[in-house]
Amino acid sequence: MLEQMIQMAGWIVLQTAILLLLAPLVQGLIKKSKARLQSRIGPSILQPSYDIIKYLKKDAVISDKASWLTRVAPYIAFTAVITAGLLVPTFIVNAPLGVAGDIIMVIYLLGLARFFTALAALDAGSSFGGMGSSREMALGAIIEPAFLLALFTVCLLSGTTKLGQIVQVMSGKEWALIDPSYALAFLAMFIVVIAETGRIPVDNPDTHLELTMIHEGMLLEYSGRYLGLMLWAAEIKQLIMLNLFISAFLPWGMALDWSSIGAGAAIFIYGLKLALLGILLAVIETAYAKMRLYKVPKLLAASMALSVLAVIMRVVM
């Protein structure tokens, strides 16, 4: 019993470390690939990590109009995101907190982070924060159902909402996975990943135009370590989305237990999958342009339609 608990604790620490360290790296990789695609050399892959270290060392300036909310929101968002991350498998079929929650839990934890970020953006009363959060919440209201629907399809395919089990069922299916309803859900989920990570064509992460910002607009009032935490949380959220995508749609090669060879290979394969997904995101972001704001819901509606189609197909066939 005690041994199990120690093992559990160790696992939690390991997964947290993976989330904390890997998230800025993935961001760095995406940035680097984007720079390459724009014919530039670009900053080092470690740059986002350096940035976070730099921000965390700095003092924060906070508007004197802001309440305590502005101060606590980064911590809440950060913790919520990390907890969500502990529910999603990485390179091994189960997640440390897998027993405690399922897919729905992940979505709501991310929703919690989103809610507090938006609330804090309204707090200081700047117009950009207000614009950013109203846009984020409006989009969030469509992203979340699309997200749920896409995942439900997967749940339906595997017959469970527990991520660990989904992975096991999925990777057990081998080539039987290539199934039309699965392919539709794959596309639907990919659109959700793009929307949730705030990338083109939904949001533009590199913009410096206040008026077009969505996620960035909400962070405009933040500085120093609060900004660092918020950015870090956003990067971790991006990693979680990729993890979810990997567990639901690319589960091959995940380790089933802690045997050293299996785990080693699984870590390698996991890294490979992340890198490929990151580069894919960068390519999409480079080749597309940002959509008009009021057309974004249509894209997400397309994602939902795909999911519904997938579900129907599943039931009919």
Binding site: S39, I41, A183, L184, V283, A287, L306, M313
Partner: peptide, 29 residues
């Protein structure tokens, strides 16, 4: 299904290819 898939991918496929070809041609400057 095939139709739905086509709808999702189509239209963008061509120009995406063009864009990537252009990027490839330019290289790192």
């Amino acid at each position: 299904t095939v139709k739905a898939l086509n709808l999702a991918v189509e239209g963008e496929g061509n120009e995406m290819f063009e864009v990537i070809r252009k990027i490839w041609k330019t290289g790192v400057v």
